[in-house]
């Protein structure tokens, strides 16, 4: 089974892209399955089952960072995908935490960015972009050729190795080659590792502390003047 992890900020067009991918995979005789990971609400699984009658699931990350949650549930989702007899597992994550990135070594990492988010966005999304294999830029139908080209150049500046696909995900324009790339990805092995290590270990805020102010926290912390400090357990 092949694994595709598709991340990207909210409403950039992840589902629209994956719908066209699913359609094209089915046309070529493949058996895709779909997993949606979100924080507290998602209905993609139901919509996609209704449209394509393929196996779908969803997981809510709730109080966890969605990327951390995915790391934990990914193994079980692969077992699930295999059990349903699928040959491509497509995972749509919420991808809201811009310090983490959800990609694993053997799978294909796809980030979906929208051209309408302004020319500086590629400079802001961090490892979610730099550790991806493919960056799909959607909504190119909405922006000027100029902004489209500047957006593309900025992705290339921060992530020179990432392949860029520009797409109008409403019509599926530009998505054929993404399907070729997915099908050229090797099957996933039994053990798989995250591509990058998620940042700063035990974050006191992640573990539930609510006091504000630097003196209330330990581990690696930021200071007001953009410094980084380390403090052992208080």
């Amino acid at each position: 089974m092949k694994l595709v992890i598709c991340a990207g900020p909210a409403t950039t067009g992840k589902t629209s892209v994956l719908r066209h991918v699913i359609k094209k995979l089915l046309e070529r005789g493949h058996r895709p399955a779909f997993l949606k990971l979100d924080i507290q609400f998602a209905e993609e699984d139901e919509l996609i089952t209704r449209e394509f009658a393929i196996p779908t699931r969803k997981v809510y990350s709730g109080e966890l960072c969605p990327d951390h949650c995915l790391v934990i549930v990914l193994k079980d989702s692969m077992v699930w995908g295999q059990k349903t007899g699928s040959d491509v597992l497509l995972v749509e994550t919420a991808g809201l935490c811009l310090r983490c990135s959800p990609y694993v070594e053997d799978g294909l990492g796809v980030i979906v960015l929208e051209a309408t988010s302004g020319m500086n966005l590629p400079l802001k999304v961090g490892p979610m972009l730099t550790l991806a294999d493919v960056a799909v830029v959607t909504k190119v139908d909405r922006v000027s050729q100029a902004e489209r080209e500047v957006f593309r150049a900025r992705i290339q500046d921060v992530a020179p190795a990432v392949r860029i696909r520009e797409a109008n995900a409403l019509y599926g324009i530009g998505l054929g080659p993404l399907v070729d790339t997915i099908l050229a990805t090797p099957d996933i092995g039994d053990t798989t590792l995250l591509r990058g290590s998620p940042p700063a270990g035990s974050c006191t805020i992640c573990t539930g502390a609510r006091e504000i102010g630097q003196t209330s926290h330990f581990g690696r912390a930021k200071t007001f003047d953009n410094g980084l400090t380390y403090e052992g357990a208080r």
């Binding site: 020319m119 139908d141 909405r142 922006v143 100029a146 080659p177």
Partner: peptide, 27 residues
């Protein structure tokens, strides 16, 4: 299809617009 920088087609639709708020010259 592979490299958007090699794509020989530019398309302008009714929905196409500029998002930037820079001065025209800077843009």
């Amino acid at each position: 299809r592979d490299d958007p920088a090699c794509n020989p087609v530019a398309m302008i639709t009714q929905h196409t617009t500029f998002l930037s708020d820079l001065p025209v010259g800077d843009f």
